[in-house]
Design a protein around this nucleic acid. Structure first.
Lengths: 191, 191
DNA sequence: AAATGACCGAAATATTAAAACGGTCATTTT
DNA sequence: AAAATGACCGTTTTAATATTTCGGTCATTT
């Protein structure tokens, strides 16, 4: 066999999950696309959920790359933070796999999808927390509790990128940055 | 008749909506509790939804009173804003009617419930916006767009009161205030 | 003139039958 | 002998159908 068996199956799983979501994908379907028998899949994965987990791990690796890439850019701490989060959420918003999983969570509450999306949220939150902690170390940010601050920033980005766009004109990246610059970072109180 | 007919029906509607939500309440049930025939209800309200609207109007009137009361307290602008919003959301949290409607929106998407909750959100947002505009007038706050700032504060409160409590220990009123003091009002950037 | 509840079509719910699914394993292929 | 396979199994989902409940009306009663 020229290509790795596990990789072939994983690629097929990624494709079908992206097209039909977790619930909408049958193991038989993945097997056919991968060009193997159904039984073969169970020599590589304990069950269907383990396939999703493997696909998600790949995916989280990509997300991690975004934060990593931005980290080495030579910019202000605040701008870096913004760019990493913006790119991440944009990526998340456009990726078919995540779109399907998100819908599955809200419509069917499929437990495997819930846990997969939880992983994504945790990952983003953790990356954000690390970035904030770094800003604190460098003496650029004052923060009592990095977790609370990460939560605050994360929820606001989600609110603006998801909820705001539902009823108003979407903000450009620049405008969104301004919102955060004014509110979270500088504060609105006049001194 | 000693008590007002409309008020009696409205009171019964309020009770049953609070106990069973909109979907879970039948018109016959309201009629029985109000001690009138079903037909009588339709002499006062065009349809079931109009009953809900009337109940919600009463409710929004109560909410308005909270903002009004706080407005006249002699405190810092920021503290006032916080107290008004906190009272509002605590009230909301305790109020069975809103709990049921909120669940109905997320579980069944009942259109009458969606529109009722939309009204509540709009009302809170508008009150908040007015309070912020007042802070700006008094030269206490610097804000580019009161709508965006109101949205920011509202979403953050909801996030902390709903989402944060789902996974972490609920914040006390004091802690919640600190979060807003640090993030929105003063900012986290070191100058 | 105001109040009522039996009645209507429509919508929600419960019941049942049929199909599809995840996972296994005896058999086949390499 | 080891790896791959798909027919097969019990369970879960879905589709089809029968039953109940509901919002709203209106002829009759109060």
């Amino acid at each position: 066999m020229i290509t790795n068996k596990r990789a072939t199956i994983l690629e097929a799983a990624k494709r079908t999950f992206s097209l039909f979501g977790y619930k909408g994908t049958s193991v038989a379907h993945v097997a056919k696309l991968a060009g193997v028998g159904k039984g073969t899949i169970y020599t590589e994965f304990k069950h269907k959920e383990e396939m999703l987990e493997a696909v998600m791990d790949d995916f989280l690796h990509d997300l991690g790359a975004i934060f990593e890439r931005v980290k080495h850019e030579d910019e202000r701490s605040v701008l870096k933070l913004h760019r990493a989060l913006y790119d991440t959420l944009q990526y998340r918003k456009e990726h078919q796999l995540l779109i399907h999983l998100t819908e599955e969570v809200s419509v069917h509450g499929t437990k495997e999808a819930v846990s997969a999306m939880q992983k994504v949220e945790d990952f983003i939150m953790t990356s954000l927390e690390r970035a904030i902690a770094q800003g604190v170390e460098k003496g650029r940010l004052q923060v009592n509790d990095t977790e609370i601050t990460a939560f605050t920033i994360y929820k606001l980005y989600i609110a603006f990128i998801v909820d705001w766009e539902e009823k108003k004109r979407p903000l450009t990246e620049e405008e969104l940055f301004q919102v955060f610059e004014n509110h979270i970072f500088n504060g609105i109180v006049i001194r």
